[in-house]
Nucleic acid binder design. Structure first.
Lengths: 202, 202
DNA sequence: GTCTATATTCCGATAGAC
DNA sequence: GTCTATCGGAATATAGAC
């Protein structure tokens, strides 16, 4: 029979449990509102362990945001296919991710970015370099128009996310994904490839 | 010559100074992030005075949100005029308010609602009862479609506000108001009066 | 009306025993 | 690897002197 002394088991899943709890906490209360102590309690570990693994709250947040979903993997299938369906495919993929467990990271980043400049920069850079740039590069429009087109798309998609997942305004909060795809897809399509001559004439 | 003893002057503007400082603080950091102590420091009064005037942080927030702008006064001129221009007029009025000093209250409510369920309810009720209901009542569409149309409008407008005033994604953050009116107006118009048969067929 | 002082609670981070 | 103990700070709110 093994001796009972020596190091406590040291569950190798502890680190992952902390990450999962952190993601959930940041999604519920945002970066500032979530506390390391609450994360530790949810993961059933000591608060000091969290520091031991991740060093600081900032680094814990970054670790919790990592990996759950990579636009580089999702976007190619969105960009393939007819140009006219791009808006709907983008909204469909967007909702698919946010409605899944991986969407927790999105809610966490969004909630944090609104009250914390550091995470706001993170969101901006994610949007611009990981999402918008990949999508806009495929379009056949005046390159000078791309930044505004991109931020219009972001406005509509982030607005949808805020209403559906954060503020929870009905009926958008509970609508079937395909309902929103049909409703919002054409908006995104127009921002991406529509004729915005009037806009740029101003 | 008046006696120098007796009560200290007691500036009658003190209360208003606290309210202005509170609105600015809530706009910058949200409800949870703003502290009564910071509000008091900005207003150059003692923190205990804030409690004396307003009783609690909740009531201070409510007082700071009051009055700066009333949709009941703004919307009639938006609703008057041709139906086809409704979307653009709505966006124009929206941006006019948010770009003005009164917009501070909007940013404060928005920033707070994202990290605080209590203020989120406040935002939902403001949107539904003060804004959307007034606008939707004027439309000539199937009443069963109104809730979804309304929350789609809210998604686009709040998304625009989040990107322009909170996350500050360029170029939307610095764009001329009329540029955004021309870009986003048609989206709002479609959500309000457009043919969404496909959406409701789902 | 105004301010000092404080009760109470919670935070992130660190040092060091085991 | 894990946990106890604690440092240093900041928060809301209240009691009560002047």
């Amino acid at each position: 029979m093994a001796r009972r002394t020596g190091r406590r088991p040291g569950n190798p899943d502890t680190r992952q449990a902390i990450l999962d709890a952190a993601r959930a906490a940041f999604a519920e209360r945002g970066f500032d509102g979530a506390s390391i102590r609450a994360v530790a309690a949810a993961a059933q570990v000591d608060p000091a362990l969290v520091h031991h693994y991740f060093g600081s709250k900032d680094r814990l947040f970054l670790a919790a945001m990592h990996a759950p979903v990579d636009p580089a993997e999702l976007l190619p299938s969105v960009l393939a296919g007819d140009r006219a369906g791009l808006g709907e495919r983008l909204v469909r993929t967007f909702l698919g991710v946010w409605d899944s467990p991986a969407g927790t990271a999105g809610v966490a980043l969004l909630r944090s970015a609104v009250s914390n400049e550091w995470t706001a920069r993170l969101l901006r850079e994610f949007l611009v370099t990981q999402v918008l740039r990949r999508v806009l590069d495929q379009l056949d429009v005046d390159p000078a128009e791309l930044p505004l087109r991109g931020s219009l798309v972001a406005s509509q998609m982030i607005g949808l996310a805020v209403m559906r997942y954060v503020v929870r305004l009905e009926p958008v909060a509970s609508a079937a994904p395909e309902t929103l795809v049909t409703a919002v897809g054409p908006t995104v399509q127009r921002y991406l490839t529509g004729d915005l001559a009037e806009v740029f004439a101003g």
